[in-house]
Amino acid sequence: MDIGPYLLLASLEGAVTAAVLALTAVGLSLVFGVMRVVNVAHGEFFMLGAVLAWWVTSLVAGHAALGFVLALLVVPVMVGALAALADMTILKRIAYDPERTIVATIGILYIIQQVTLMTYGPDARPVEPPFNTRLALPWIEFVDGKPHIYWPWGLSTTTYKLGVIAAAVLVLIGVWLVMAKSRIGLIMRATQLDRDMALAFGIPVERVYALVFGLGAALAALAAVLIVPIQQAHYLMGGDPLLLSFIVVIIGGLGSLPGTVVAAILIGLSDGIISVFFSPTLAKILATLLVALVLVFRPQGLFGVRRA
């Protein structure tokens, strides 16, 4: 077998990573963009999403899809509500001061992580996917100059993985529609552009902040619910999504949603491909190197606007 089928396989794995990463990073980017808050606890909201998804599905008897759909609907709301509460009780009290919010969100990170360890425990637990049919994929080979379709051994994906990609695309389109077309999106963008003027025009900035922080965490939780049938829920699983989300948000341009999505696809795909052909560690090293290069040569990110 030549390299083509491997590349396709790696790209598909990378696309799943990219889809989940895009959701998580858009949540982080939204929070940074609107609130100027660097949320170090973002990965823990992701982890919490996965762990709660396991909990919800374990409560529901019957077909796996039943519990999963319930988790998909309920878990992001639960995590979002928790984050909004954290915003109102902690971040608001320290007046969103940049340095103190970083320290405060580090605190939130450890609280969530350790409470999860104390209650859920140190085990990695699986969630059954709602549907999971193996799909063999064809490849074209040229035999004596004629195209010839065959089914290479091992070249396959699952319907669930394709479902994750489709779901992420739909959610991202939804987020874009809300931001670009809806009244609440207009309010969030106005708050992002000029907080004081938003206040001077009657926008309840504190409530917008709570909403945005909740929404950002809910997106991370949603991404985790989608990935947990592939990856298993574990109390330390928040580290990688946090690191990768920051990488994506910096490369894409802080606060730029289109930039975040493009960078998520770039990093997700390259992570998948490099992990398959070389090693996952090399993928992380290269991604971090890319961040360093972006910071040196284009500090505002690929799609970011340089602020005065």
Binding site: L186, R189, A190, L193, M197
Partner: peptide
């Protein structure tokens, strides 16, 4: 300085 919502 007007303080418009510049990107809107």
């Amino acid at each position: 300085g007007r303080r418009l919502f510049a990107e809107l």
